[in-house]
Structures are given as C-alpha cells and as structure tokens.
Computed example of a mutant assay.
Amino acid sequence: MDLFDDLPEPTQTAGEASVQKTCPSPLEDRGSKRKRDAPDDDEVVEEQKLEEKKVCKGVPILKGYVAARRGEREEMQDAHILLSDMKTCLSTLPTTVSRLAYFAVFDGHGGARASRFAAEHLHHTLALKFPKETENLDKLVKKCLLDTFRQTDEDFLKKASSQKPAWKDGSTATCMLVVDDMVYVANLGDSRAVLCRMEQEMQGGDSKCVTLALSKEHNPTIYEERMRIQRAGGTVRDGRVLGVLEVSRSIGDGQYKRIGVISTPDLRRCQLTPNDRFIILGCDGLFKVFSAEGAVKYILNVLQNGSVERKEGQTEEEGHYEAACQRLANEAVRRGCADNVTVILVSVSF
C-alpha cells in the first residue's frame, strides 16, 4: 500500500520563480564539477533542454518565518530548523531538480535532547539518502524519508542508551521537504502541517480560503494505533501509552519502542499552485488553542488587515508574514496554552 496520501490536484500551471538561499550547516566534502574546455554541441543542447525544463516547472518562492515561546514550561523542549535552500547540503543532486527546501518542527517530551538531536541531524541524513536519479522520484523520495526517520531514531536511541543514566527523551516530528513545486510532509506524533489555498467561490466571485491538512496525528486513542500497541503487549490508559505517553509514534522514547511505539512517519504530498498562500507547521501547543482553520484565518487577517513594523531590509510583504507568525504564537500563549509553542510560517508565491 502506498503510504502517500495525495491532496487535490492543482488547478493552475505555475510560472517561473526563484527562491531565497540559506543553509546554516551544509555538509562538508561537497562534490565539484570538473571544467571541460570544449563541450560538444550535443552536450550544450542537452544542458539547454534541462534549463528549459526547469523554467517550465515553475519553482515557487518559499520564505520561512519562526516564532517560539516557552510558555509556562520550565524548559523549552521544542526545536526547529528552516532551510530555504537545501541544495548546498547535498554533494550531488539530480539534474532535473531545481530546488530543495526543508522546514521542520520537533516537540520534545521528557527533555529537549531528542528534539534537538532530530533538528541537528535529520536533514543531514536526509541529504545523504536523497535520490541521485529522477526516474520514479516519488517512490524514491518516499523511501528516502522512511529510511531517514528510521536512521535518525536508531542513531538517537543508540546515543541515549550509552548515557548513564540512559536518556528517556522523545520527540514528535513534522518535516516538510519541497522538491521544486512538490511538497512532501513526513510526520510523527501530534505536531501538524496545514496549507492555506485560495479558491474561487464562483466564476468572477470572491476567493475563499480552504485549509488542507498535510499531516496526520498519532495518538494512542486512534483505533489502529491502539491495536498496534496492544498487539505488542502495551496498554492504553487515560488516552496514553501505559498511562504516560501521549503520542503513539515518536523519535526516541526507547522504553516504549518494545510495546508498539514506532518511528514510521505518515507521508503526504501536495503540488503547490499559484492559489496557495502559506503553510503552517506547529507543535501541539499551538493546536491546543487553535483549530487548523482558526490558525489559518488568524494569519490571513494579519496579512490583509494588520499594521506592522518592518525590520530593516524587509519588504512590506515579508514584514506582514513576520508579524503574523509572531502574533499567532503570542495569541496561543494569551489563550492559555501552558505548553511550549513553536510556529513555522512558510509563505508561498509564484
């Protein structure tokens, strides 16, 4: 069974665009291309065709903004990472792929070590495992994401078990990988990703906002999750694994892995369109006090009506997105969320 859950097909064809470039921790030992003194005519024509193909794809501009609040917790156990340009983290990239971007939020429990480990290492493992060819790219990306989550979990558990006393930290993960104009979301636990898409109500009428879920929650009250835990010898009490753990899939949590808590993510994909405005990635601290639709509408209200102060060098649009991200996190705390709150807001434009 294909683990991908496709979202609605795009209704428009995208146009040409570029993307901001930031990669704070690229892998070392990058591959280099040798210069050739005199490429033959066939090679020149082939390179031109590849460039034309990239232009026709219409790569959207993605810009990420983040807001993190400790709330009433003694420790900030969330972690996050924003890589608007992940190409520089790879030694090689398929020639037909124009752009990679990666955004992720991790909500730790039992400590901050699992979430920080995932934020620091998961994208490097992903870069190493990313497909080198584009034939059957969807299938290869799926395998890459599954292998990356498994490897990250195994690496953390190995490190955790070597400590004295052993670490018992765990973390959710919601990771968004963008390959050209295709979004792949892999998630574990109860952090979420949602997309704001504008659609015409009627021909010539006003557009309305449609909120699309890009992730699936994993908690032990869900039938399939509870059955897996019980078959492995675990129990679910008060909506928690053994009456303690709120999520049924995670990175870390070594003491629960033998009773059905797994690190296999759900995977979803969605092609971006000119109708798409932004994507929100948030930990459960946000969604305890906001519905997905409520969070999207709050962002839209700031973008359309908010008066904002811009940072030096920001455009007016960037200032609005920055303000919307910060205000959403502040509002979650104001509404009484006692948990850590992390919001990643990714603007989409063509």
Rank of each mutant, 00 (worst) to 15 (best):
A104E: 08
R197K: 02
R99G: 14
Y223I: 15
D155N: 09
R231Q: 15
S162G: 06
S91V: 05
E224C: 06
K142T: 11
V178K: 06
L100Q: 03
N136W: 10
K159D: 15
S171M: 03
F103Y: 15
G170E: 03
R197M: 05
A112D: 10
S207F: 12
E133R: 11
A101G: 08
L157V: 04
Y102W: 07
A193E: 07
G205K: 10
P165D: 04
T174K: 05
D153N: 13
E224K: 14
E217F: 04
K164E: 10
T95E: 15
D206A: 14
E133K: 12
L195W: 00
L93D: 07
H124N: 10
S98L: 08
F156I: 01
D206T: 09
K216G: 04
A118K: 09
D147N: 10
T125P: 00
Y102D: 07
P94W: 07
V194M: 04
M202R: 15
G108W: 07
K139A: 15
F106I: 05
D147A: 08
K143S: 10
H121W: 06
M176F: 02
G205I: 06
A160D: 01
R99T: 14
L128N: 14
G205T: 01
D181S: 14
A160H: 05
L137M: 06
E135T: 12
T148F: 00
V210D: 05
H218G: 04
S191Q: 06
T148S: 11
E133F: 07
K216D: 11
E135V: 11
R231E: 15
A166V: 13
Y223L: 15
A127S: 08
L137P: 03
E217R: 14
N136F: 10
K168N: 12
D190K: 07
D147F: 00
E133C: 09
T211L: 07
Q200R: 13
A127N: 02
D107E: 01
V97A: 02
F106M: 12
R116D: 11
T152G: 03
L212N: 02
K142L: 13
S215I: 04
K164R: 10
V97I: 14
A166Q: 09
E201F: 13
E217Q: 10
M202N: 15
K129Q: 12
E154C: 00
I229E: 03
F103T: 05
L93T: 13
G204F: 06
N136P: 04
G205V: 04
G110M: 06
K142S: 13
C144R: 08
K158Q: 13
S115Y: 01
I229H: 03
